[in-house]
Design a protein around this nucleic acid. Structure first.
Length: 882
RNA sequence: GGGAGCAUAGCUCAGUUGGUUUAGAGCAUCUGCCUUACAAGCAGAGGGUCGGGGGUUCGACUCCCUCUGCUCCCACCA
């Protein structure tokens, strides 16, 4: 069958992925081999593949495929995350499109819609990963809301509550008065907003009566003055020493509030006097705690003023602001107003101005777990790659705050806490167990009276268990339970590949969960990928529309091409600036491999031909080079330098294998090839395909299958990587001299306009092994190689040097001697400068005394080499000048 | 405001505990080639006083200080 000059990936990729699936090559069961485990960072269940996933999962697949080919029992566990906030938002939007408000349906109805949505859209992303070639064990696919994984979350909550690590506390949340929900910090968008700073008079008061004196307070939120419970000054602010211990009256409502002192106040901002409104500002709340101030909440769920405000009751917060300014102006409390620009938080979903609001939330204590979690990273029990993130990690762990684990949502694991009619709370795995506990508090309680906490748990509260629960869902919350077979075998996992943004949200918490429930680390290495950005460095995002569609990209360039394109420019922890030209480079490389195959496949073995000497030399050289490369690639992988490993292979295949070896051994047109060279070359090709397979699984499988006859059911992906073997460094160095000589000759041909087809003669003097001559003859189109002593003084031509070997290329009629002299002189000048710097070192007593012997030897050799070359150049210039 | 990091060729990056020829690669650029595997290719070339300044050292891209310019994380000032 005639093979096309262009490799077309689509059909090939489908074919082999199906084959791998059918043969069960992705599946893993515990056995007596060494395990290699990765758990996927679960993408949002309703998400679609973006470039970040492409990068992240390509890296994981490279690691897993390589481990598999190193003979390990490789297991890559896939799955998805229920992503409560994101998914709930999508379901709400979908209902809204049908004219249904979330408030109109019951929790059960809403969840039914959510599950329906999940069934319809869930897992699309996993199907997309298959196109990329991801070798996940799909039999093990998990979802964070699978019944058993949800149960693990509940068990964990109950366990930690009983242990005393989970408690309820008041916290300021971001309240969206339009969406009627609390939103997470991540969903608050800060925008620069023009507002006004109002300067208000607060009269000093004694025993409820104004003294007539006043202070001035600057505020952007005059409508909240009714919630003030103090005025605050800096303890060292001399301007206000006379106010210490006194009280002021809130304008209009004339409630008396104390003046307190706190370092929080900055003396040089506003007037230096700050009104304290604990219910409506997070900082004020904290100051309030320090000074035992009461909390007066004057806003309702819709951010309208409530009866506690006394005035303007029922008004919207912004209307109230306008009205109160008029009132304050009229009463003479308003001194002035200034334009002011500040950062205001808006809800991502409703664009409503976020109202800070106090509410009762569930928290998990972090302090106790933080110490060991920090230690395991700082002492390299878990390695971060790159390790610069250790600092960031340390900083966070040392300033860790308790984790707010409750969310005011429906999609997720509902908090297993039940309230008695008297407001007391019991925590249990089921309502029946809750009743048992409730009866101990109040024997009259009935099961119908128990009301479950409506909130769900933070999604991270299920994903922090992920490396454990995917193997043994009964283990979290049961530290004393024996691990099941899977957990015992696969845990701790080997590598985790994720983004640095979630180092705290996820990675640190998995380390804590590992300690708590398995008494062990969850993984040994954490490879942190960068952000995928566009060419000009902007983050890829839907709204910018600067992200290519990964599926289309794979259809156009092939999954192998995209994988290579992503990997070539991505070192750990560095952002990658994505450009389609990189993917083109990947596709071109696949095409190159394809064409190398076409060439080799077209060769016919001629049993009567013996191996030409240049072929024998090339085979020996490439054999050494391959061994050296295996060494280098192993080293790159040990250090997680994936792009370097790939780049090395890229050059090895393209330049060394195709550009040199294949060109050297390629038989002349119409002739056959000898058996020995053919077999060696096929063997090289086979090894190269193995080395390339983790990066480019599809094309390597395709060609490997066709290179030799393979047994049905065999596959490259379950074959073994070439192992390192002894090689001769000197042989490689010698061959490089021949390569350089050839390059020099080609260079001279081009600069003098001599066709590669014109055969030339070459004269030389120096230590070039005669064994290499046949390679030079073939690759530089040289007719014969003679000793330089045979040079006819009348010959015209070009001289050059490689290392310390002198060459002369006779060129008939070539007379541009001046140019040759100039070239030699430039070279001479460079060498003399170089020699001078070397001599400076060698004649420096301190250098000779302090530098290690090895360095001195190198410098000495540099000097000898440079002097030899200078001498020869001088001779040459002299000859040319005659 | 607190913390961290980065700055090397036009672009993206290496440079492995300071010394392997006065810095390497890929891409891009330029020149010449439709050479019977591949123009998604082949052959060759040019290009950097390693952000500025100072210091330590026999020796600095590498260590220290400082300035400049970017980036990220955390907290956000009434």
């Amino acid at each position: 069958m005639e093979l096309s000059a262009k490799y077309s990936p689509i059909e090939t990729e489908k074919k082999w992925y199906k084959y791998w699936m059918e043969k069960g090559f992705f599946q893993s069961e515990p056995d007596n081999r060494e395990p290699y485990t990765i758990v996927i960072p679960p993408p949002n269940v309703t998400g679609v593949l973006h470039m970040g996933h492409m990068l992240n999962n390509t890296i994981q697949d490279v690691l897993v495929r390589r481990a598999r080919m190193l003979g390990k029992n490789a297991c890559w566990v896939p799955g998805t995350d229920h992503a409560s906030i994101a998914t709930e938002a999508k379901v709400v939007a979908k209902l809204k499109a049908q004219g249904i408000e979330k408030g109109d349906v019951t929790r059960e109805e809403f969840l039914a819609h959510a599950w329906e949505w999940k069934e319809k859209h869930g897992g699309i992303i996993l199907e997309q990963l298959k196109k990329l070639g991801a070798s996940c064990d799909w039999e093990r696919t998990k979802f964070t809301m699978d019944p058993d994984l949800s149960q693990a979350v509940i068990n964990t909550f109950v366990y930690l509550y009983n242990k005393g690590d989970i408690y309820r506390g008041v916290r300021m949340v971001n309240w969206d008065p339009v969406g009627q929900t609390a939103v997470s910090d991540e969903e608050v968008i800060h925008k620069e907003t023009k507002s006004k700073l109002y300067y208000l008079k607060y009269y000093l008061s004694e025993n409820g009566k104004s003294t007539g004196e006043h202070i001035v307070i600057a505020t952007t939120r005059p409508e909240t003055i009714m919630a003030d419970t103090a005025v605050c000054i800096h303890p060292e602010d001399e301007r206000f020493f006379h106010l210490k211990g006194k009280s002021v009256q809130i304008p209009l409502i004339e409630r008396e509030i104390p003046i307190v002192e706190d370092n929080y106040v900055s003396m040089d901002f506003g007037t230096g006097c700050l009104k304290i409104t604990p219910a409506h500002d997070i900082n004020d709340y904290e100051i309030g705690l320090r000074h035992n101030l009461p909390v007066i909440d004057i806003l309702d769920d819709y951010a309208n003023l409530n009866e506690k405000a006394i005035i303007l009751v029922g008004e919207d917060r912004f209307t109230a602001r306008k009205k109160i300014i008029k009132m304050l102006n009229k009463s003479g409390h308003l001194i002035k107003e200034e334009s002011y620009v500040s950062q205001i938080g808006y809800s991502e979903r409703t664009d409503a101005v976020i109202e800070p609001r106090l509410s009762l939330q569930w928290f998990l204590k972090m302090e106790e777990a933080a110490g060991p979690a920090l230690e395991s990273i700082m002492e390299d029990k878990i390695k971060l790659i790159p390790d610069k993130y250790k600092n960031t990690y340390k900083h966070w762990m040392e300033n860790v705050k308790d984790w707010c684990i409750s969310r005011q949502l429906w999609w997720g694991q509902q908090i297993p806490a039940w309230y008695l009619p008297n407001g007391k709370v019991v925590v249990a795995k089921t309502v029946e167990e809750a009743l048992t506990l409730a009866l101990e508090i109040d024997p009259t309680t009935s099961i119908d009276e128990l009301e479950q906490d409506p909130d769900v748990l933070d999604t991270w509260f299920s994903s922090w268990l992920w490396p454990i629960s995917v193997f043994d869902p009964e283990k979290p919350g049961n530290p004393d339970k024996e691990p099941n077979r899977d957990l015992a075998y696969y845990y701790p996992t080997n590598d985790l590949v994720t983004a640095p943004e979630i180092l705290f949200f996820w990675v640190a918490r998995m380390v804590m969960a590992g300690q708590e429930f398995c008494n062990d680390i969850p993984f040994k290495n954490v490879y942190l990928t960068g952000t995928v950005r566009d060419k000009s460095g902007r983050k890829m995002s839907k709204s910018l529309g600067n992200s290519p569609d990964p599926i289309k990209l794979m259809e156009e360039f092939g999954a192998d091409g995209v994988r290579v394109g992503m990997l070539l420019c991505s070192s750990a922890g560095n952002d990658i600036l994505f450009d389609q030209s990189q993917v083109e480079q990947g596709r071109n490389f696949a095409n190159k491999i394809w064409n190398a195959y076409r060439l080799v496949k077209g060769w016919e073995i001629d049993p009567n031909t013996t191996q030409p000497s240049q072929s024998a030399i090339s085979v020996r050289w490439f054999d050494n080079l391959l061994a050296e490369s295996i060494d280098i690639i192993n080293d790159h992988f040990n250090k997680f330098r994936l792009s370097d490993a790939l780049m090395h292979l890229y050059k090895l295949f393209r330049d060394d294998f195709c550009g040199w070896h294949l060109e050297i051994v390629k038989p002349a047109y119409g002739q056959g090839i000898d058996r020995q060279t053919y077999d060696s070359t096929i063997n090289f090709f086979d090894n190269l395909l193995r080395l390339l397979h983790p990066f480019m699984p599809f094309i390597t499988e395709e060609l490997w299958q066709n290179l030799l006859e393979r047994e049905e059911g065999d596959s490259l992906m379950v074959n073994i990587m070439p192992e390192k073997y002894e090689f001769n460094k000197k042989n490689i160095a010698q061959f490089n001299l021949a390569k350089e000589t050839i390059v020099q000759i080609r260079n001279i041909r081009q600069s003098k306009g001599i066709s590669p087809k014109e055969e030339l003669k070459l004269l030389l003097k120096g230590s070039l092994s005669e064994q290499l001559y046949p390679v030079i003859l073939k690759m530089a189109n040289i007719g014969e190689i003679l000793d330089l002593s045979e040079k006819d003084p009348n010959d015209t031509g070009v001289s050059f040097m490689v290392d310390t070997i002198e060459f002369f290329l006779p060129l008939e009629g070539f007379t541009d001697i001046a140019q040759e002299i100039k070239k030699a002189q430039d070279e001479l000048k460079h060498l003399e400068g170089f020699l001078k710097s070397v001599n400076a070192k060698l004649s420096n007593e301190k250098f000779m005394a302090n530098a290690p012997r090895k360095v001195v030897n190198i410098e000495t050799k540099k000097r000898t080499d440079a002097m030899t070359k200078i001498e020869k150049l001088n001779q040459l210039i002299e000859e040319l000048s005659k």
